[in-house]
Amino acid sequence: MKTDIILAGVGGQGILSIAASLGMAALANDLQIKQAEVHGMSQRGGAVQSHMRISDKEIASDLIAKGGADLILSVEPMESLRYLPYLHETGWLVTNITPFVNINNYPEIDAVMTEIKKIRNHIAINADAIAEEIGSKRSSNIVMLGAASPFIDIPFEKFEIGIRQIFGRKGEEVVKANLAALRAGREFSQKNR
């Protein structure tokens, strides 16, 4: 088993909380992981990505090779396209469709969506709207993780264990909200894949 995932977003959007939950899920399933993050200058509102590698065998490189990613998981639509050179031809692109506009020359969102729809295997999800629907605005990242979960070779209950471990300290309410977000995201992908 091997799943190589590019996590994408903008500095400050919190892709590292997705990575942490995913890492916990992988560990709960006795898998090896390597996860390369971006710290420092780019965290100030710049484009950020994280390479998350999960495998049942020893992992050598911290970086995913271009053309080797099984999944791009992006919390921002334009950012999902920035890493296309990494996506394997059979890989999935799972992206939030809510743009994060902190630059003057952000492209027309329709043009961005057109490019996303050109990818054969894609899930475009309004994670912010879904998070709001289930009454947990701040959980849109976990909606995204749920949306990506069908494409990651880890049993779903392990994702739930990961969520409990990451959010357990913040109390049962927060855990419940994030579990609901996880399930809502997963449901969307299962219906729309």
């Binding site: 990613a69 630059i103 492209p107 961005v112 490019e115």
Partner: peptide, 9 residues
């Protein structure tokens, strides 16, 4: 994989 689309700034 595919090149980065030109729409990406």
């Amino acid at each position: 994989g595919k090149p980065v689309p030109s729409v990406v700034t």
